[in-house]
Deep mutational scan, measured.
Amino acid sequence: ENVVSAPMPGKVLRVLVRVGDRVRVGQGLLVLEAMKMENEIPSPRDGVVKRILVKEGEIDDTGQPLIELG
């Protein structure tokens, strides 16, 4: 899985990584606010952040691509 998608609709509060960062499975990639709760979205695998497809403050839909890993 190279693309991390939104598991729920919500607002992107914080992006915790930058392009080029090495990430490990379970590491937080970004924080979504949904139903007044903050949810940290973890990396599904080890890899390198290739692209960040959303910006802080954006509203996303379920299934929307958020981050691409390489």
Rank of each mutant, 00 (worst) to 15 (best):
P7V: 07
I41L: 08
V3F: 14
R22Y: 14
V12P: 00
P9E: 06
M37K: 12
P42G: 09
T62K: 13
L29G: 00
P65W: 10
E40F: 12
G57V: 05
R51M: 09
G28I: 15
P42I: 13
E1H: 13
V3E: 05
T62Q: 12
S5L: 15
G20E: 03
L53T: 03
L32T: 03
L69A: 01
G47Y: 03
G28W: 09
G28P: 15
A6D: 02
V17E: 00
L66V: 05
M35K: 11
G70E: 15
G63K: 07
D61H: 14
E56N: 08
M35E: 13
V15W: 11
V25P: 07
S43A: 11
P9R: 14
G10M: 06
N39H: 15
L13Q: 04
K55C: 12
E38L: 12
V12A: 01
E58F: 12
D61I: 14
G20Y: 05
L16E: 00
V23T: 03
P44W: 05
L66P: 02
L69R: 01
V4N: 03
G26A: 04
P65R: 06
V31A: 02
P9C: 11
P9L: 09
L66Q: 03
E40S: 08
V4D: 02
G20L: 06
V15F: 11
V17A: 02
E33C: 15
V31H: 02
E58K: 09
R18W: 05
D21S: 08
I59E: 11
V19S: 04
A34G: 09
G70C: 15
V23G: 02
V19M: 05
V25D: 04
D61E: 14
E58Y: 13
V12Q: 00
V17M: 01
L30P: 00
V17N: 00
G20C: 12
E38Y: 09
E33D: 06
E58N: 10
L29K: 00
G57D: 06
E38N: 08
V25H: 10
V31P: 00
K55D: 09
S43L: 03
V4W: 03
I52R: 02
G28V: 15
V49W: 00
L66E: 01
L16P: 00
D46F: 08
V54Y: 05
G10E: 00
E56D: 08
K11P: 00
G70V: 14
R18N: 10
V31C: 05
R51H: 08
R18G: 08
S43Q: 01
P44M: 05
R18M: 10
V54A: 10
V3G: 05
P44Q: 04
G10C: 11
M37I: 13
V54H: 04
D60I: 15
M8A: 09
V49C: 05
P44I: 04
P65V: 10
V54M: 06
G47Q: 02
L13P: 00
P44G: 04
R24P: 02
G26E: 02
M8I: 09
R45Q: 09
A6C: 11
V17S: 00
I41G: 02
V25C: 12
Q27G: 03
K36Q: 14
L29N: 00
K50W: 11
G10L: 05
G57N: 07
L29H: 00
A34K: 05
L30W: 03
V15T: 03
G28H: 08
E40D: 05
D61R: 14
V23H: 01
L32I: 14
N39A: 12
G57T: 05
R51K: 12
S5M: 13
N39C: 15
V3M: 13
G70S: 13
K36T: 11
A34E: 05
K36G: 15
L66H: 02
G47M: 04
L66A: 02
D60E: 15
S5I: 14
L13G: 00
V17T: 03
V4T: 03
G10I: 06
G57C: 08
L30A: 04
K55Q: 12
I67V: 10
P7E: 06
R18P: 00
R45E: 05
K11E: 02
D46H: 08
S43G: 02
G57R: 05
R14M: 06
R14C: 09
E40T: 15
L13C: 08
M37N: 08
P44N: 05
G28S: 12
P44L: 05
V12E: 00
P7C: 09
L16D: 00
E68R: 06
M37A: 10
L30D: 00
L13H: 03
K55L: 11
V19E: 10
Q27S: 05
S43W: 04
V4M: 04
E56C: 09
M35S: 11
V48W: 15
N2W: 15
K50T: 13
V3A: 06
V31D: 00
E40R: 08
G10W: 04
V25W: 09
V23R: 02
Q64D: 13
E1N: 13
G20Q: 03
E40G: 04
V49Q: 01
V49S: 01
R18V: 09
V19H: 04
V17D: 00
V31T: 06
R45F: 13
E58R: 10
I59D: 09
I67H: 02
V23W: 04
E1F: 13
D21E: 13
E58C: 10
I41W: 03
K50G: 05
R18T: 09
V15L: 12
I59K: 07
R45H: 09
V12F: 00
V31Y: 03
K11S: 04
G28C: 14
V31W: 04
L32K: 01
D60L: 15
E1L: 13
P9T: 10
E33H: 08
K50I: 14
V3P: 04
P9H: 10
L32V: 09
P9S: 11
V4I: 12
R22L: 12
S43V: 02
D21Y: 06
E56M: 10
E58I: 11
Q27M: 07
K36A: 13
G70L: 13
I67K: 03
K55A: 12
M37C: 11
V23M: 02
